[in-house]
Structures are given as structure tokens and as C-alpha cells.
Amino acid sequence: MIQVAGWYITSRVFNGNTDSRMRFGGPSPSLAPAPVLLTPLILLLLAAACSLVNARPPCLDSEEFYYPHTGVTRPPWCDHFFNPPQFEEKPRDQRVMSDRVASFTCRATGNPEPKIQWRKNNRRISGNARFIVLQVPGGSILRIEPVKYQRDEAEYECVVENAAGDTIRASAKLEVLSDDPNSLPNGFPYFRTEPKTKAVEIDHTALLVCDARGNPDPNITWFKDNRPVDLTNPRYTVLRSGSLQISTSTEEDGGKYECVAENNVGTAFSNLVSLYVRGEYFLSTLSTSGVSTFCLRYLRQG
């Protein structure tokens, strides 16, 4: 490859023949500027800087994102760093009995991961002995236990925000009925059989019985440790009767369970019961210095 060099003086090309005092030559090595290498690491840092500088854009139907509160416009090539929050599950209105349980679930997606907070009548709930805020994958649960008649009747709001967009909100109303059975509306769910505390051996099947009635027939769900049971786990099955069957039990299945019956008249929570998953035990003999000792040992299968 042939390289051609030239010098320019006042926009005219110098060819070296005009002035014997001027000669061709390259720049002195000591004066040459150092090359700038845009390594992948530098490019990543530049992209991260872009995402940090250009935060909180609502997405408009245009080629760019605009920040009304700052006047900053972000080019669309930064878009893959951000996703405004969106609801996956909103809290629903509930009607429950006094001195029982109410539970609201709120789930949302976004990038960065959204932060969720709960409000009662527009006042933030920080959590206390009766108001419990639980974090679950992709969301949050507000549990009120025990629910107080009239005192807890209110509008509860799930507030979701992240750095990529405006705050979104969803609300639900809680109606609390007197604990007098004669005051319950017709069709309100009730339990014919509630689950009972039970112990099961590892690798065996556990069955937590729940039989609920109502008009219309209530939908049955289950909670474990105040969170919805993960029915994507193939070992967990809600039978047609409403009972929860757990196949091939493991230690992780142990915990506190409750059955929830819900129809368009109201929601009823069963008593909270415990499931204990234990291993098999066997007798063994230890012999030390001629002395035999009988020991009860725990055998964990698998």
C-alpha cells in the first residue's frame, strides 16, 4: 500500500520544490498524539453514562423520549436500558368478615425493577402488628390480620414507580362485615371442613383438606406462609374438592397453610395450620470400649 503525504500552507499544497528550507517529513514521535482506543469496556461505560444522565422518561409516540419536568430529550438508541412500570396483577376489592384476614396482591414489571408501596386512604402503610407487607417475586402483598370492623374499611392503593417512567397506581376497596353469622349476605363462602395441622414423612404425599361452600360455588386457592402457593410446581395440586395435595414432600414444603374461598359475594380465610415434614428415624447401636449405646438417628432419604 502506497501512502501519500502532503503539507498545507494557507490552503495551498506544498510540493517541496518551492522552498529549499522546507522538507517532507513525518511528525516527531515525541509529539505524536496518543491514539484513542474505544475498547468494548469504554463503550459499555459510555452507554451506562447515557442511561444515568437520561433518567425518568415517559415514552411518547415519537422518535424520541422527552422529560417534561427537565426538558431533556433522550435519543431512541438508549431505549433498551429502560422499561416504564406496568401492572401484571392489580389488587381487587374484597369483602371479608371481621377478625379474619384480608390480603391484597400487586405485581408489576419494569426496568429498573419497580418499587412498590401501599397506601390506605392516601396515607403510606409502613407495616405494624396487623398490617404486614410481604415481598414476593415481581410484587408485594398487603396482609391485614385480624381485620377490624369499620376501622379497616377503606380504599387501599398500590403505588409503583421506577426510574424509567411515571408512577402508576391501582386501588381496591375493603369492606368488613360484622362477625355475627346472621348478618352475612346470602351466598357468602363458608367452610364445611377446614385444614388441620399435619405431619408427613419426607417423600410421602401430604393432603391438606378443605371443603368450602357458597353461592355461587367459591374458587379455592391456598396460601403458604402468607404467600400464594406456587401452583407452577408440579408437586402441588388443588383437587376438585378444594384440598391441596403435595406429592413427594420435602423439608421445604413445611410451613403454615391456609385455604381461601372466594366468590362474588365475599372472601373467607380458613384457620392457619402447620404442615411438618419429617424424616424417618431408626435405632442404631454404638459400641465404645465395650459399652453399647442405643441412638435414635435421623435418616434423610435421597
Rank of each mutant, 00 (worst) to 15 (best):
R151P: 00
D152F: 00
E153N: 06
A154N: 14
A154W: 01
E157D: 09
E157F: 01
C158R: 07
V160E: 04
V160P: 10
E161S: 14
N162H: 02
A164C: 05
A164Y: 07
G165R: 09
D166V: 12
D166L: 11
T167H: 01
I168T: 05
S171C: 01
E175N: 13
V176L: 06
L177W: 01
L177R: 04
L177Q: 03
S178R: 12
S183Y: 00
L184V: 11
P185W: 08
P185V: 09
P185F: 06
G187E: 10
P189C: 12
P189E: 12
Y190L: 07
Y190R: 12
E194K: 12
P195L: 08
K198N: 08
A199K: 06
V200P: 07
D203H: 07
V209I: 15
D211F: 12
A212I: 13
N215S: 15
I220K: 02
W222I: 05
F223H: 11
K224Y: 00
D225E: 08
N226E: 10
R227T: 14
P228G: 02
V229K: 04
N233I: 06
T237Q: 10
L239D: 10
R240P: 02
G242N: 11
S243Y: 05
T250E: 13
E251L: 14
E252S: 15
E252W: 08
K256D: 05
Y257V: 07
Y257A: 08
Y257P: 08
E258R: 15
E262G: 02
N264L: 10
V265H: 08
F269R: 06
F269P: 12
S270W: 04
L272D: 10
V277N: 02
R278H: 08
